[in-house]
């Protein structure tokens, strides 16, 4: 799961630059979907581990996920991991998954609302050499594996997959449950497990900015361009003009 700046706090300054200081963090929406899917899949004896990478302050937020029903919470936190691209992130998650596993299934969100790359699930699957099914909106256990409903551009694909796999979930596929009294009580006695690069036996060159294979050269604020077109209140004219514009683009 990834903690992202809360979308509702995105603000711009006078020059349409995004203000990012002091923004509060929230769990990425699609990742919440993934956690809820995991909680529903687990049998009485199953174990759901929540794994995240980020600043040390996420410990409290992870505690809350324990209260919502997760059995274990693991935080990868290390200054050397800052600035990781999707590859370096996948490398860290792979090492952590192997250290905290074994596991039958890895669930994650299909993309985060800040970076929006959606690449970590696939890179993680390849790193672990297991299957990956993306953009899933519903899943259930079958006798031989998993049945998955994957949303594509033009329809829903029903797939069956056998063997360990990574599944990336769509936003709002499942709504994450609220903390329950029982799980809140259980969560109190649990601690968040912390993993550093050393714990994961990752060398400095494999972490963060240094372990990345892409490099951001420039970053420019680009607030949706103001167009400020003319406003018309005569609705007959509106219809005529819209029709004319439709004619321009329709083949």
């Amino acid at each position: 799961m990834k903690a992202v700046p809360a979308a509702s706090t995105v603000e711009v300054d006078g020059e349409y630059r995004l203000k990012r200081e002091g923004t509060s963090l929230q769990w990425n929406i699609a990742d919440e979907s993934a956690l809820e899917a995991a909680l529903r899949l687990k049998d009485g004896d199953g174990i759901v581990t929540v794994l995240t990478m980020g600043p040390a302050k996420l410990e409290a937020a992870l505690k809350e996920l324990l209260a919502r029903g997760a059995d274990r919470a693991v935080l990868i936190t290390d200054r050397r991991m800052a600035g990781a691209d999707t590859r370096a992130t996948a490398a860290a998650l792979k090492a952590a998954a192997e250290k905290t596993g074994p596991f039958d299934l890895i669930l994650c969100g299909r993309r985060a609302i800040d970076g929006e790359t959606g690449q970590v699930p696939g890179e993680l699957a390849a790193a672990l050499d297991i299957l990956c099914v993306s953009n899933v909106e519903r899943l259930e256990k079958t006798e031989t594996g998993m049945r998955l409903f994957r949303r594509t551009e033009n329809g829903v694909q029903e797939l069956e997959a056998a063997g360990p796999l990574v599944v990336s979930m769509c936003e709002y596929a499942y709504h994450l449950r609220l903390p329950g009294i029982l799980s809140m009580r259980r969560a109190k006695s649990k601690t968040v497990e912390i993993l550093t690069a050393d714990d994961l036996e990752l060398k400095t060159g494999e972490c963060g900015l240094k372990g990345s294979l892409t490099k951001v050269i420039t970053m420019e604020a680009k607030y949706p361009g103001l167009r400020k077109g003319p406003k018309e209140t005569d609705l007959s004219k509106a219809t005529e003009q819209i029709q004319a514009m439709l004619r321009e683009v329709r083949p």
Binding site: P5, V10, V12, L18, I113, D114, G115, E116, S212, L213, T214, K215, V216, I217, T218, M219, E220, A221, K222, Y223, P224
Partner: peptide
């Protein structure tokens, strides 16, 4: 590529 909605544009180079 755009990031955070379309509000930031990042220029990226591969190191591989």
């Amino acid at each position: 590529r755009p990031a955070f909605g379309n509000s930031l544009m990042a220029s990226i180079r591969s190191l591989s």
